[in-house]
Design a protein around this nucleic acid. Structure first.
Lengths: 319, 319
DNA sequence: AAACGAATCTGGAACGTTCCATATTCGAGT
DNA sequence: ACTCGAATATGGAACGTTCCAGATTCGTTT
């Protein structure tokens, strides 16, 4: 019996007689045979593996994107393997390289930390989709992001509708997403005629940066704070607690990303939710499109939605 | 110039003349050449890849173990790739299989969900180390765990030393770790002469199980609660808050696992810490030992330590 | 019984590396 | 100039699969 025949039978090829097929399958079962991905990938030029590159495993924002990727990958018959950068640029580049050397069929990058050059380079070797980073890359890197500007506007509008006017913003460092959220905040405030109320504080790089920025921000006595992300919002909650300011009675707080944190912290946090599952699914779709020949870049921008919880309420009527 | 020579030069073999070596390296650089892991792995029978199998990406307990694995893997020259089971037994088995087909040099399983049979099966094909699951497996599966009994005792002793007597326990479902922690609790209470004070409540399977069990437990008016893990402790904090019971003034709470949650929640949670980094490192060490010929099973049990934060204090003197 | 096409099976090349045994070149010592 | 050993380079087998072009068998039709 030739190895070719065995190969055909194991893959369920139609041109194998029923009897032989059954015999081969039985023998394979008995011997515990498993095909070797290395060999198969080598000859086929396809591994049916999708690589996911993460900056930071502990970041709950990322993990839900991964869930979306996995769901879509399953239905496409792909296996998802993750590589982890541990918040270290060099390691991230190294892990990306490791994935490519494995001949993965595509890479989904869920990390703002990878250098654009490294991405462009990778895109020359396999389809690469960048998730959650608002820049556009030239040269074959597709992107899926949320509309940070719209998210920020939704947050501000929600607070304004509750009756808030002194809405402050706790901004992030100079990541593109932070910048866009800050712009969205500014524009929304302007559109509501609250230009004069704009108050922004940026989180510094030091370990206690969040805490300090929150303190400075609260010194201005806003009735509401829109924070660049849930972690920043947590810093505001903490500071408010320390100063004896009741949330949401005396201060409303909105976060961004709707991480598990938002649902864990007390009071539960109103937060802007990115459709992460959908984003992950789209990323896989884009990889598949590339594999079947698309060559123009595709950039998808999804609309975030506000999840209202217990941290926002009407402002106290001042007296 | 022969491919063999190129291969030698790229791997920095000594028997290649300096001039040729340099020329080859330059050419490789210019062409952007990267060796192919599939081909190399196929011929060498070693991929220098370590697989990590996770039940649940979102579980912060797991991710720090992974950090330990990665650190040790780095120094050993291994690349770490993660496969994710998404809390689904079938998927977990499938992912384990995928790793093995890739010819990973070893698998570190950070999941209590994998069937013992599947593990034993896997161990026949590559070194397998199970982390954080207190059972022992026969047939080639090494284990690294923490001493749940000692951890529970430390928690109870801490509370007793503060002066608590009515120390209740919020227990988990029937996972082996929960069972052992509960036993440790019972024994420690006995040793302290508090047998009569033992009060245990088990978290049910329904979505609000934690909440309900916490409520029932607090109805008995304990002055302290030792919870089977940080999430359960959070349920106690919540319930206490709802009932207007001040923590730690009127109720002390201790968690287990010292996840990021413990440091996030207010008040910050006293919790039993497993040396997760060390555990991850040990797991890699065990894989390496197997690769260099060890055949007897190895079972390592590490001692957890209590991290004291703001959720525990002397009991209120009753009046 | 011959001929034909369909069904079933087979052998060898190929994938990109490493590894081994062998070939070639080089420089020094006679 | 000749030999010898060391230094350097080479060709082909091997890893476990898939793929392709053919080879063999089989059942029908004449």
């Amino acid at each position: 019996m030739s190895k070719s025949l065995v190969s055909l039978a194991l893959r369920g090829d139609a041109g194998v007689s029923e009897a032989t097929g059954a015999r081969i399958l039985a023998a394979a079962e008995r011997l515990g045979y498993r095909s070797n991905t290395l060999a198969r990938g080598l000859v086929q030029g396809r591994t049916m593996i999708l690589g996911v590159l993460l900056t930071d495993l502990a970041n709950p924002y990322h993990t839900e994107v991964v869930a979306g990727v996995e769901e879509a990958a399953d239905t496409g018959g792909f296996t998802v393997l993750m590589a982890h950068g541990r918040r270290d640029r060099a390691r991230l580049a190294h892990q990306l390289d490791a994935l490519l050397r494995l001949n993965v069929d595509g890479v989904v990058v869920v990390s703002s930390w990878v250098e654009p050059d490294a991405l462009a380079d990778a895109a020359r070797r396999a389809p690469v989709v960048m998730v959650g980073r608002p820049e556009r890359f030239t040269g074959g890197v597709d992107t899926v992001t949320n509309d940070d500007r719209a998210g920020a506007e939704a947050a501000v509008r929600h607070l304004a509708e509750l009756g808030h006017e002194r809405i402050a913003h706790l901004s992030g460092s100079r990541s593109p997403a932070s910048r866009t959220r800050r712009e969205g905040y500014g524009e929304a405030m302007g559109a509501l005629g609250l230009d004069r109320r704009v108050a922004v504080r940026e989180i510094g790089d030091d370990p206690r940066g969040g805490e300090r920025a929150a303190e400075a921000l609260l010194a201005a006595r806003p009735t509401a704070v829109f924070a660049v992300n849930d972690l920043a919002a947590l810093a505001v909650l903490d500071r408010a607690h320390a100063e004896g300011i009741a949330v949401p009675e005396e201060l409303s707080v909105v976060g961004y990303d709707n991480t598990a944190l938002a649902d864990t912290v007390r009071p539960r946090l109103t937060s802007v939710d990115q459709p992460r599952l959908v984003m992950g699914g789209l990323a896989v779709e884009m990889v598949v499109e590339r594999l079947s020949g698309r060559t123009e870049d595709r950039h998808e921008v999804l609309t975030p939605s506000l999840v209202i919880r217990a941290s926002t309420a009407r402002p106290a009527t001042e007296g």
